[in-house]
């Protein structure tokens, strides 16, 4: 907003000042746990930790951040392997999801065919169905088709019929470009990936980022389905912490935890403007 010197009355200023103070307090409570974790990661392992976790780590054991890679082991997987598992799980799962919904959202949005409304209405209907107990059936299915403890798990991300945000975004892209290309003799596939896909990239990349981050952080499916052979960082941190009562490696845990939250943070900071400003506006309004 240009030249937005907003004039506020005195009572408004008081309220804004109070809210500002509250915001600052909230901000501190959000940041503090990570200062605590950083300090804890520099402490000495062993029983000492649980008796004194708050005092400043003296001397600071920076070596803990290196030792993570040797000592952070969950069901025979080390930290590097868990990181790799997180990488393929989140990127693979995201690609599977993104490819399925991008293709279907595009076709349902831009083409008229029999069953088009059925797909759209089915999607809307499933969105208001409060399904609670399908987990056990999913578990049985995945164990029947041998997906459990296997990289095939990424294909479970293909359950979505289409994506409403992408649908709305495709709708906002004019069809004239495509018509011009058809006249020039381009086929349907070519129009899709040469003309429409590049224009939808802002929406696709935001969905990509959000999905990668949520897969990276997901713990419930990896704990349930992959934790023996393919622990991810999220599920590995859980299992490592479950045994911390016996291992007393708290500082190693915190060092591993701090590394694990870095990639989503880095992605978020790099793309915060496009996430915050651009697409959600169009997406939710559409």
């Amino acid at each position: 907003m240009k030249g937005s010197k907003i004039k506020r009355s005195i009572s408004q200023r008081v309220v804004f000042a109070v809210v500002f103070v509250l915001f600052c307090i909230y901000a501190i409570t959000l940041i503090y746990p990570y200062i605590f974790a950083f300090n804890a990661a520099l402490k000495e392992s062993g029983r000492v930790f649980t008796r004194d976790m708050v005092s400043l780590a003296k001397p600071a054991r920076w070596k803990n951040f290196v030792d993570v890679f040797g000592e952070f082991v969950v069901s025979d997987s080390g930290y590097f392997k868990m990181t790799w598992n997180s990488v393929w799980y989140s990127f693979g799962g995201t690609m599977v999801k993104l490819i399925t919904v991008t293709l279907s959202s595009y076709v349902v949005c831009k083409y008229r065919f029999k069953g088009r409304n059925l797909i759209y209405n089915t999607l809307i209907f499933t969105m208001v169905l409060p399904i609670v107990g399908s987990g056990p059936a999913m578990y049985k299915l995945l164990s029947d088709i041998n997906f459990i403890e296997s990289p095939m798990m990424i294909f479970t991300f293909a359950g979505g019929l289409m994506d409403l945000m992408l649908f709305a975004y495709f709708k906002s892209i004019p069809w004239e470009y495509a018509e011009a290309a058809f006249i020039d003799g381009a086929g349907h596939f070519k129009v899709f990936y040469k003309i429409m896909l590049p224009q939808a990239m802002p929406a696709i990349s935001v969905i990509f980022i959000m999905t990668v981050v949520s897969c990276w952080n997901d713990y419930s499916a990896p704990i349930l389905y992959m934790n023996e052979k393919y622990p991810t960082l999220a599920s590995g941190l859980y299992s490592f912490h479950e045994r911390i009562r016996y291992s007393h490696k708290h500082p190693i845990f915190f060092a591993g935890a701090l590394f694990a939250i870095l990639p989503p943070l880095a992605i978020f900071i790099a793309f915060q403007n496009s996430i915050m400003d651009k697409v959600f506006l169009g997406g939710l309004k559409g």
Binding site: A27, Y219, I261
Partner: peptide, 22 residues
Amino acid sequence: RCLFYIPAIIMPTVSAVLFKYI
């Protein structure tokens, strides 16, 4: 706006454990 959103992108297995210790 940026800071308040960060809890949404932190791994729950980390933030919950941190909360537990705090």
